[in-house]
Design a protein around this nucleic acid. Structure first.
Lengths: 343, 343
DNA sequence: CTGTTAGCGCTTTCAA
DNA sequence: TTGAAAGCGCTAACAG
């Protein structure tokens, strides 16, 4: 077992080779201004000595960390994880790493995370605001410091200077509900999430829009806005809702996959036949819908692509000269309805 | 919109206040060796000027980054995400952030990630080795550099100098299979994952051990070691297996929740009654089993706790004086069998 | 092609 | 109670 020795640094290599630190640095960069033979010598020596550059020193000196900060509202939501996977894949290809923080659905945490990132740890930030986030001063403050920001998913308000990646929730929901209506469904229940959240508002809007367009009365009794922020309670809320429902639904449009599944589970337990008596559509399409029996029709979100796109926009911002204040972009990604057994 | 101005640094505050940088630094640390009134002056000025410390500079100077590197085999596996959540919660309480990297089930990536972390970006590493990981030289190399390491989950071989957090897979499986046997099941199928992976080996061992103990013949036809590394193909493999199975199973022990669910789905489709004709037990208990109809009996792993424990051990290592070579710890966490409708 | 040197922003001795 | 100054390890401008 070798002794725990001091890290070897450029200076050590330089001394061994009787050349300057600068030359070693350049050589390891494979800078053609260094004689090939010198470069080779340096490479060999670096390897022999087990040299490993100090990333922190590099960052301090170069002003770049090659880290992208990512802030998501929660970990236990496949949607966010899938977005992160997209970010990570794109980032890695471009030599960035990602630092993920969860805001735990709390504005305080979100701000704290942002502040932590402002301390120079990251070159830029990708953020999905929580439903609590009403003020955007903390985000603007980051942007004003010249740190590139890309927002995704739950965007209540466009933030000047940030890029945005989102989904046309409104339209997607409209299409889904329209699909149900065209199957002659009348009592279409709506299961949404906390209405403070922009995405849920939009999905609700789409539902309302479709119902209105086809002159179907909107019944309060058929509408649930879940308030829970964790799995367990969601289940309870949905069960209670259907246990006590006044009107028998012949279709349910659920705003997330999980709501859709919990709905199916509850309805099956209550003796409903799916899809004969009641059709179900979920939102997200993150794998669960496929596994369930009957499999669930879903609005498929391009989740992974969302992450990729966000990373792409961020890295573009890195490469833009800061002087030219490029107009920021708003990207809307397309969804599609994936038909399965539940409709 | 304020101009994009240069970050304010200690020097700026010092100059404004006509004191030295050192004093400012100490004051912001709330160091009692600085006169209280000075500290207050500094605090106020720092706030007024919008001072934000540069984390990178701090790290270079102090030799600590307060970042924990985490390497997991994949993102799209709730198990790992849940472990990460545990790590993150514990880490955050102790003022650490986590940098998550996926090794994509590839030894190459794992090593690359490790090398990236070796560059001084992180103070320590929590790692779950991939099934491909046979050599541990890359891990040892990190440890020899004095970087604390904690391994979890898929540990094929104890690595000197690292802490380990694991689950008694062998025993857990044994208990689950024994439970089935005591329900008079004879044709107990085993659905495992790539057998190269230590956890799957152990779960298989437990199965075999239980079968042998109760003198139940072990039938090759009832054993499947899935080879796939992604969701989609897992589904296909399991379907094929049961479509062509020679012996009707009266119980299935599945090595992951997902295998369990896919099994249930396939068996239901083939017309089996669960649990009347066939009982199912899954492994993990990460939420899916509860949602499914019928709900699935599972071996519950203390996933979140695993993450917490790993973080705890790592942070303990940080605090140990490096000279005293504390013996490293191996923690085995307990599982339990959660009974639901599938058995 | 290579070396010298001045930082990057902060911490921390040592001295006053 | 404060300040001066030497690093932390690397980059990059400038000089030769």
């Amino acid at each position: 077992m070798p002794l725990k020795k001091r890290r070897v640094k450029l200076e050590d290599i330089a001394r061994k080779l009787n050349i300057s630190i600068a030359t070693v640095s350049r050589a390891l960069d494979d800078n053609p201004r260094v004689k090939l033979s010198t470069r080779e010598k340096v490479f060999k020596m670096a390897k022999a000595m087990g040299y490993m550059p100090n990333q922190i020193a590099k960052s301090l000196s170069s002003g770049k960390t090659n880290i992208i900060g990512v802030i998501i509202p929660r970990y236990d939501e496949p949607f966010f994880i899938e977005v992160c996977r997209g970010i990570d894949d794109y980032a890695r290809e471009h030599n960035y790493k990602i630092l993920i923080s969860s805001s735990r659905n709390s504005f305080e945490f979100e701000r704290d995370n942002l502040i932590a990132f402002e301390r120079g740890l990251v070159d830029g930030i990708i953020l999905s605001p929580t439903h609590e986030t009403e003020m955007f001063t903390h985000i603007r403050s980051v942007i004003n410091k010249g740190i590139p920001v890309v927002l995704f998913d739950n965007i209540r308000e466009e933030v000047q200077g940030a890029d945005h990646v989102l989904i046309d929730d409104d339209m997607a929901s409209f299409k889904a509900v329209e699909f149900l209506i065209k199957k002659s469904k009348k009592n279409i229940a709506f299961i949404g999430g906390i209405i403070e959240k922009k995405v849920f508002q939009d999905r609700y809007k789409g539902y309302i829009k479709a119902m209105k367009k086809y002159n179907i009365p909107i019944r309060k009794e058929l509408i649930l806005h879940c308030k829970s922020l964790d799995r367990e309670y969601e289940d309870v809320e949905i069960q209670q809702f259907f246990n006590n429902i006044a009107i028998q639904p012949d279709a349910v449009f659920a705003c997330t996959d999980n709501y859709g599944l919990l709905t199916m589970k509850t309805l099956l337990r209550l003796g409903y036949k799916i899809p004969e008596e009641v059709s179900i559509i979920g939102f997200g399409d993150l794998g669960l819908g496929e596994v369930f029996v009957p499999s669930m029709t879903c609005i498929a979100q391009p989740t992974y692509e969302m992450g990729q796109k966000a990373a792409e926009l961020l890295i573009e911002q890195f490469n833009e000269s800061n002087d030219t204040d490029h107009p920021k972009k708003v990207i809307k990604l397309k969804t599609k309805l994936v038909l399965r057994d539940s409709t």
